[in-house]
Design a binder for these strands. Structure first.
Lengths: 322, 322
DNA sequence: ATAGATGCAAACCCTTTGCACATTA
DNA sequence: TAATGTGCAAAGGGTTTGCATCTAT
């Protein structure tokens, strides 16, 4: 995992020079949780070094945005806010009109729909902004707004694990059902093996989840950051059609498995790549790599199987010819 | 359908005074298509009456926003734009970073997800902003941007009809399937009747659709304004479970029908109510009313049926007692 | 008569910039 | 030393406002 300094260094553009003041500003900025306005940042920075001018802070903010260290967000109130990308995934916002507090969330389903709309309109989407304006729970309950910021990093990691677990579960269910339905003994054996592999992997993920939660028991009850409804469901639907025609042999079963694992790999890779350095990103990419590995294994087996079949057929032909 | 003047009058707040200049500004504003910046509006208004000051125009814009005649939108470029609500449904935006042109769309699926997120976080959502930034088709193809604005009003009407038709179709499929599966003769009869009613209604809607399209043949090929994927699918899923247990009698069949029609009614009512005066709104509300009527009819039948059964049982008991 | 609408210009707010000076590679 | 970074103050742009003056009810 990158330290803040390493994170900045990997983003530092070439040809620039190091400057103590900029370092102070960037350092102070990265310490902030959530969003901060330029004016507010000026106050915080000045507390550390009073001789830093407002212009430099604006210029540094721009520099960070260009470098990909900061993201500029617009809540429609005529001023910009900035949030850092370090251990902080890209997200959408719920914005309270009463206390001005903002809450973060992400929805893979919304993202998928947005992509679909853009594709239909032949629009090359670069970035999507989703903001829900209204009144937050604390305000509508008359309670004072809790100032403690959400620990987005850990919650994101939790949710990434949840998505991975849900995917494994849906894979397990799928393969189990497939094994039951398969009439062909070899096909059934393949599905059973796939199911047991999913079960094993599921165990690993669940252990990891328990570990994460035991480090902070309150984590489990925190509201969701990443919303995912259909994201993982669709991955195994690809194989559902073939399931209906129950005469699936081992070759076909492997093909179905390959397709499912590949879909899963793609989904997690795409999702993981979207984020800046964060634990959740790592979980997504790890999971993607594991699915990929599993997929490759199945492909190798498939090839071996086809090869065996081919040579057997060849042998038969030779025998017949003889 | 309200005229622009009537539209403004229904929104005019109490206690205010009529003023010729404001009328001019509002009139000019309502003539605009799509979005317009304050500065741009100043130019257009001044062309009509050069003695209207910039301050009055800003004040009138604020007045229109407060009255619900105009919506203020923020594309993140430091200035606000305004769009009118008259015959112009609320919507989301695709914003081209090259030509600054913006395109409108609406997605009931995105809206449903957004509501779900808000509900999960116990956030009272008032308004959602969805903006997709990127490069539009014209710009990425190197073609000049077409200046002709999209005829949102008609396209919305088209899409509203499409949603209604899709819903009827899914209802027709559902009832037909139910009729086939039902073992009980009376239950089957109810489903068959429901199916034939859906078929009839579908015919009406399709005729209306053809009429709309024949008025403007190019309409059919215009890109979607309203995206709806799952919106209508779920309405009939509610009854799917009962279908599996095939021993559905007429009473139960009526209950399933009532539930489906009611879900459909609610969906269209909720959707229709979201919009300002527009043809699409009218279609949604009409359709909602028709579903409601159908639902009420089924409820009356259901009650009559239950009553008949009750009195028959009573008669049986009396006879037995005698 | 009086609350509300308008014009003008100034004020506002947040942000960017020109220019002289300081710093870093 | 040559390219970058910084400070200061001023300018910029979009928007709002104070106040005197109208004007509709």
């Amino acid at each position: 995992m990158l330290s803040p300094t390493e994170f900045v260094d990997t983003h530092r553009p070439a040809g620039g020079r190091r400057s103590g003041k900029r370092d102070v500003i960037v350092g102070v900025f990265l310490e902030q949780q959530g969003h901060i306005g330029a004016d507010q940042l000026v106050d915080v920075v000045r507390a550390r070094d009073a001789r830093i001018s407002r212009a430099t802070i604006y210029r540094t903010l721009q520099w960070m945005v260009d470098a990909g260290i900061a993201r500029r967000v617009d809540f429609g109130d005529g001023r910009f806010r900035f949030e850092h990308a370090y251990r902080h995934p890209r997200h959408f916002h719920l914005i309270c009109r009463q206390c001005q507090q903002s809450y973060e969330f992400l929805s893979s389903d919304v993202e998928a729909l947005v992509e679909e709309v853009a594709a239909t309109r032949r629009f090359t989407a670069q970035e999507a902004v989703v903001q829900i304006y209204g009144i937050c729970e604390a305000c509508s309950a008359g309670r004072p707004t809790a100032d403690e910021p959400e620990p987005v990093e850990t919650v994101f990691a939790r949710d990434a694990l949840r998505v991975a677990i849900a995917t494994e579960r849906s894979g397990l269910t799928f393969y189990t059902r497939a094994a039951k339905k398969a009439k062909d003994a070899r096909g059934r054996a393949v599905f059973q093996r796939l199911a047991s592999e999913e079960r094993e992997h599921l165990g690993t993920l669940e252990a990891r989840y328990r570990e994460l939660v035991s480090a902070d028991p309150a984590l489990e009850s925190r509201p969701a950051f990443l919303f995912f409804k259909g994201a993982s469901d669709g991955l195994f639907a690809a194989g559902a059609d073939e399931l209906l025609q129950k005469g699936v042999d081992d070759r076909q079963a492997l093909l179905i498995g390959i397709r499912c694992e590949r879909a899963s790999h793609r989904f997690f890779k795409k999702y993981g790549e979207r984020f800046e350095e964060s634990e959740g990103k790592r979980i997504f990419l790890e999971f993607a790599a594991e699915e990929r590995e599993h997929c490759d294994l199945l492909v190798r087996e498939y090839k071996a199987l086809v090869e065996r079949e081919r040579s057997r057929a060849q042998a038969g032909r030779t025998r017949r010819r003889a």
